[in-house]
Nucleic acid binder design. Structure first.
Lengths: 210, 210, 210, 210
DNA sequence: CATGAATGAGAATTCATTCAT
DNA sequence: AATGAATGAATTCTCATTCAT
């Protein structure tokens, strides 16, 4: 009954896990479906009961892995009871960077395959077991603060891209600087960025005066 | 002699041009060497007289295209006689963004295949016909100003990554904002970034006091 | 009891009907058992409770469809009360041709798969619900007339093949003539054929004289 | 120079010959391209330099084999110097039936795959080395006689279909009669058919009287 | 130098059939 | 009886690379 469902879930997991280790080891291109299924100790034909092709597996994997990272960061934030909008953002970024630094193969895989387009669909709207999904979470983040921002989505976009693009090289190759050095530059810049987006009293004041 | 050289150059160009249009049209993976040579109207075997495999063609193409963009930007800067370090950097960034905005297929190709590693080797040390190569050019840029910066390479790295990662989505998909809107946010941020890297009187003052 | 039987009959019909429409649409070769059972809204494994393979389904279908055509023709003959051996044969041929002309997909299927060997086993000895089976019917046809024929089976064979082979192209492609034009040529020829097979007074007279 | 062409012709022949013997031995469906190329002692990939798939080989084979039969019959007719339209037609039919009777595997292959549509395109318009192609030949046949016929193409069609459909079963299975017995019935019927199509003096006479 | 026919390893995919539920 | 997940053999087809001309 639930047994069949369980069994199917296990098979899918076996395929996905096998694929992940092969994608990382040999790359997407040099991994064949035969390879995946051999490692998963399942028959080749079984693959097609679960996925259309290996690109579907890759997309599934990105969604899954990225969600796990985000979930972990969210749980950590919750435990630490950080206060203040900026502090929370920096905490999340820091937590994600540390996770990626601890798991470089995962970073290599994600970085090679992640784009803002996939990110939006993958992370933002992915249903989560124990935490809010990214969209709801970010919404809540903005609601919990008194501060007002001009274009919330763009702010998030700028932070994500800035972190993602710089972190990739730094973590994987320590080029051109090490991660701690990057953080020293990155976090102040993020604070400035947030501040640039804030609607200050001056803005509204000017508006009022007319 | 020159005739033979010319002939060889023409064949190489034919291969490279054919490959470029196919890479853009169908992607690297779905383009075979047979495809490339058929479109180039040359025999399949001839490919191996010029390149080892299609990845070598791709790398050659990225170097070539990226250099062309950078060369154009440099020439424009020269003509406009912009003064001031920040102004020059902003001008270059603006010029490159405009070029990419005018040539989206090129951007798509470059963005898919460009990384900081390739960028360094591709652009920095590429010999140029009419202008300085990127390394010399940036060196000169720093020399022409009185201002002093802490970590020049990292400053360049941050700017390049910031521009590259945000511009990609914005130009190709106008997501989450349009290019003009991005520029409005991006250029002030670059100015702040530069300012963050500057060694001010205060820095040296503090240092003196000890 | 009858209910269970009914249920089984319904399932078999579902399979057969699904197979027929797929054989016509995509051909025997390109129709898989999975296709058939999906269209029939039954599980794949169920197929093997009713048939050995798709060739068995095809043979069953030919028998069924050909019998239906023959049954219809026989019933029509009965109603019209045609008199005379030749007239009856021509009437039957005409009725069958008209049926096939009205149902070209059926003709396409039958023509592609029908041979004299299958025809004999399929039609001649198929048990019929409301009418005589072909063998008995033809036997009766010969008995009802005073005329004597040399080789009854061959006469039937010649007529069947002549009609079958010419009608196929004419009905499906109107090549090289239309059906009415074919009939104009075909029916006189059938009359001659019958006449050629008849044992006349002259035949027996000659025989007597020796 | 011609050597390369020769070599290619030999390879194509090897593929075609191998395919023919396998199609006959195991049928089209159970013959794989791997089988064909193994028997031809060529690499699998080479197949695709000459044919798109095995159905293209089949069509090529039918055209080739049917043309050979027709060519042989024509040459024999030429040698025997038969006079008279009917006599020539009967001679040709007889020659073809004898060829097929002597080569039953070929008949089995052709009969399974030949249709009037393929026949027309395959035989009628196939360029011949040593003899006229079927279209020109038949045209000449009609020109050499004084007799006039109503619908030449239909006459040919009726004869071809009549012979083809009856001969198939008789030669392969001796069912329901033997070949000599069939001929005894078939040839008189062909003579009647020809006669039915003739425009006689009576026809024109009637026309004149008005 | 240039060619393009030939190769054959290897990838994707299908599908009849089985069998535990 | 019915199901449908799993199997893995079989098949098609692609394509980088070689090499005789």
């Amino acid at each position: 009954m639930g047994k069949l469902e369980d069994n199917k879930k296990k098979k899918k997991d076996a395929i996905v896990d096998s694929a992940f280790s092969l994608f990382i080891e040999k790359g997407l291109n040099d991994t064949s479906i035969a390879d995946i299924m051999e490692k998963a100790k399942l028959a080749k034909g079984t693959f097609y009961l679960y996925f259309k092709d290996k690109y579907e597996v890759r997309d599934y994997l990105i969604r899954k892995k990225a969600s796990q990272i985000f979930e972990k960061a969210q749980l950590a934030l919750h435990e630490e009871k950080i206060q203040g909008f900026e502090e929370k953002v920096i905490f999340l970024v820091d937590n994600v960077l540390n996770q990626l630094n601890d798991n470089k193969v995962l970073l290599r895989f994600i970085a090679k395959n992640l784009s803002w387009g996939i990110f939006r669909h993958a992370i933002m709207s992915m249903p989560m077991d124990r935490v809010l999904n990214a969209e709801e979470f970010i919404e809540k983040l903005f609601q919990e603060t008194d501060r007002k921002f001009k274009n919330q989505e763009m702010l998030i976009f700028m932070i994500v891209e800035l972190v993602n693009s710089t972190a990739h090289n730094v973590i994987l190759y320590e080029q051109p600087v090490t991660l701690p050095e990057l953080k020293e530059v990155l976090y102040p810049l993020i604070r400035q960025l947030i501040s640039n987006f804030e609607i200050t009293w001056a803005d509204s004041g000017e508006a009022d005066e007319r």
